[in-house]
Write a protein that binds this DNA or RNA. Structure first.
Lengths: 224, 224
DNA sequence: GAGCGGTGTCAAGGATCCGTCAACGAAACG
DNA sequence: CGTTTCGTTGACGGATCCTTGACACCGCTC
């Protein structure tokens, strides 16, 4: 059964949509705000998210960005705002589709079918387990041998980019662009400093790293 | 470069869209009707199709159905008809997205980006398997009989160029230009050194290479 | 079989890159 | 307003890698 996470603060609309979805055979979870939407997405593991942009606690695109840090699950956006820039922002943040209100229920259903149809199974783990290291991408937490490790925002950001592409090489330019922005693509000394700090906090023997691997001349790689 | 097939009979709109798309760096092919659209889709192999439903020769959903018999390429539908049933029919026929006319050009661009972004990871085979040698171009990783082989940046770069054109001859000048730059086109001694190093690391019997083949007087070739 | 062009092999600088440490200043916090 | 935490630099030793030159080898021609 296809699982749908519905993130919608308007309880009337939420109830109506949930009823319709269930009548079509979907398994529906409802979240009332962005924060619980993000939480439920990692716990309930829906096959598709239907997200209202007008949430009380946070901006809708932030929800999308947050989900996209660890998951490729389809996201269909509902919005009363019909401006071009809202659509572009949501889609470029990682949304798969954008439906303006008011919308026809049959159209939404068709877009839902289209989104689930093309969704291919891939590794979408919010929690990455690398032996004594456990990294929860959704909750932004790192545990080493069971105890929480405190990371600074930048340290976390670097680790997140590496873990999201675990096993594959991340070039220095990619890493710098994603964490510090396009203007810093040649500041390779930042990486040296932060990789050293991460290793000191995460590796058993920082001088002989087993997870945060240097590919000399190319970049870095997170190894499980 | 991303290739777009634009199937549109209105020549004014087709020209305007083609200009915009090309200015954004897309490679655009235009088809005037459904039949040639289907033909071009199989010959030009676009990364994404933008399809106007209102075509002179056949119904738009038939075009979608026909494409879907052999391809999963993203299809974005444009349509002046704004009825629910048209949208549902097109989406259920296999379209990925449906944009009603009149549409904003920025919205279409954003939806195009969303469609290609989704499709990107599975479009071509990044892993090359040559018996005991497994080369993962995306992850920048080489395995020989199951164990990782460490390559220096230049070694990797040379191997990458050869593997990308596996089976075909790569001339010395091509190889030197791609790895060291246009100024080094005659430094053929570099190639001798690096090919020898690669063979030492990758070949079972470096003096009798089975994958990194020399084409005397011409260049090199990667054989599977 | 000697000469020759093209190719493979090896080793040794010398340049570059990486890890580490320390210090400074800015920002966050109470 | 003082304290603490972070992010940013710079410097330096050491490891790695690129380059270069010398020499051996092979197939071919004469």
């Amino acid at each position: 059964m296809t699982r749908v996470l519905l993130v919608e603060d308007d309880s009337t609309l939420a109830r109506a949509l949930a009823i319709t979805l269930r009548s079509r055979g979907y398994d529906v979870t409802v979240a009332r705000d962005g924060a619980s939407g993000i939480r439920d997405a990692s716990s309930a593991r829906p096959d598709v998210v239907v997200l209202d942009l007008g949430l009380p606690d946070m901006d809708g695109t932030e929800v999308i960005t947050s989900l996209r840090t660890w998951s490729q699950m389809p996201i269909i956006v509902l919005s009363a705002r019909d401006g071009q820039s809202d659509k572009v922002a949501a889609l470029d943040a990682g949304a798969d589709d954008y439906v303006g209100k008011p919308f026809g229920i049959e159209e939404l259903m068709a877009r839902l079918r289209a989104a689930t149809r093309r969704a291919a199974p891939r590794d979408d783990e919010p929690v990455v387990d690398a032996g004594e290291l456990v990294i929860d991408l959704a909750a932004a937490r790192v545990r080493r041998s069971g105890v929480d490790v405190r990371l600074t925002p930048t340290e976390w950001h670097v680790l997140e980019v590496l873990v999201r592409r675990k096993g594959t090489l991340v070039t220095r330019a990619d890493l710098l662009r994603e964490v510090w922005g396009p203007a810093y693509e040649s500041q390779t000394n930042y990486l040296r400093v932060y990789l050293a700090q991460l290793r000191r906090k995460l590796e058993h023997d920082p001088s002989r790293p087993r997870h945060l691997i240097t590919e000399a001349g190319l970049g870095y790689r997170f190894e499980i």
